[in-house]
Simulated assay, not measured.
Amino acid sequence: MKSDNTAAVPPRPAQPRVRVWDRPVRLMHWALAASVATAWLTRSDLGVLHEVHEIAGYAAAALVAARTAWGWAGSRHARFASFVRAPAATWRYARDVLAGRAQRFVGHNPLGGWMVLALLACTAALGLTGWLYTTDLFWGYGWLADLHNGLGWTLVALVALHVAGVAFTSWQHRENLVAAMFTGRKAPPAEPGEH
Score class of each variant (00 low, 15 high):
Met1Asp: 12
Lys2Gly: 11
Asn5Leu: 15
Ala7Pro: 07
Val9Tyr: 00
Val9Pro: 01
Pro11Asp: 09
Arg12Asp: 04
Arg12Cys: 01
Pro16Met: 01
Trp21Thr: 08
Asp22Gly: 13
Arg23Phe: 14
Arg23Ala: 15
Leu27Asn: 05
Met28Arg: 00
His29Gly: 11
His29Ser: 10
His29Ile: 10
Ala31Phe: 14
Leu32Glu: 03
Leu32Phe: 06
Leu32Arg: 04
Ala34Val: 12
Ser35Val: 04
Ala37Thr: 09
Ala39Pro: 04
Trp40Asn: 01
Leu41Lys: 08
Asp45Gly: 06
Leu46His: 13
Val48Gly: 05
His50Ser: 13
Gly57Thr: 03
Gly57Glu: 01
Tyr58Gln: 11
Ala60Val: 01
Ala61His: 00
Leu63Val: 04
Leu63Glu: 02
Val64Met: 02
Val64Gly: 04
Ala66Cys: 12
Ala66Asp: 08
Arg67Phe: 03
Ala69His: 05
Gly71Leu: 07
Gly71Thr: 07
Trp72Lys: 03
Trp72Glu: 02
Gly74Met: 06
Ser75Met: 00
Ser75Arg: 15
Arg76Phe: 14
Phe80Cys: 06
Ala81Phe: 03
Ser82Trp: 09
Ser82Lys: 02
Ala86Tyr: 04
Pro87Leu: 09
Ala88Ser: 14
Ala89Cys: 03
Tyr93Pro: 10
Arg95Tyr: 02
Val97Thr: 05
Ala99Ser: 12
Gly100Met: 10
Gly100Phe: 09
Phe105Leu: 04
His108Phe: 08
His108Ile: 09
Asn109Ile: 11
Asn109Tyr: 10
Leu111Gly: 14
Gly112Trp: 13
Trp114Asn: 06
Val116Phe: 02
Leu117Tyr: 01
Ala118Arg: 06
Ala118Ile: 02
Leu119Lys: 07
Leu120Gly: 00
Ala121Trp: 00
Ala121Val: 03
Cys122His: 00
Ala124Thr: 00
Ala125Tyr: 01
Gly127Phe: 03
Gly127Thr: 03
Gly127Tyr: 00
Tyr133Glu: 11
Tyr133Met: 15
Trp139Met: 05
Trp139Lys: 13
Gly140Asp: 08
Gly140Ser: 10
Gly142Glu: 14
Gly142Tyr: 05
Trp143Met: 07
Asn149Gly: 13
Asn149Pro: 00
Asn149Ala: 13
Trp153Phe: 14
Val156Phe: 12
Val156His: 12
Val156Asp: 06
Leu158His: 06
Ala160Leu: 15
Leu161Arg: 09
Gly165Phe: 10
Gly165Ala: 15
Gly165Trp: 11
Val166Thr: 15
Val166Trp: 11
Val166Gly: 10
Phe168Arg: 15
Thr169Ala: 15
Ser170Cys: 08
Gln172Ser: 13
His173Asn: 07
Asn176Glu: 05
Ala187Ser: 05
His195Pro: 10
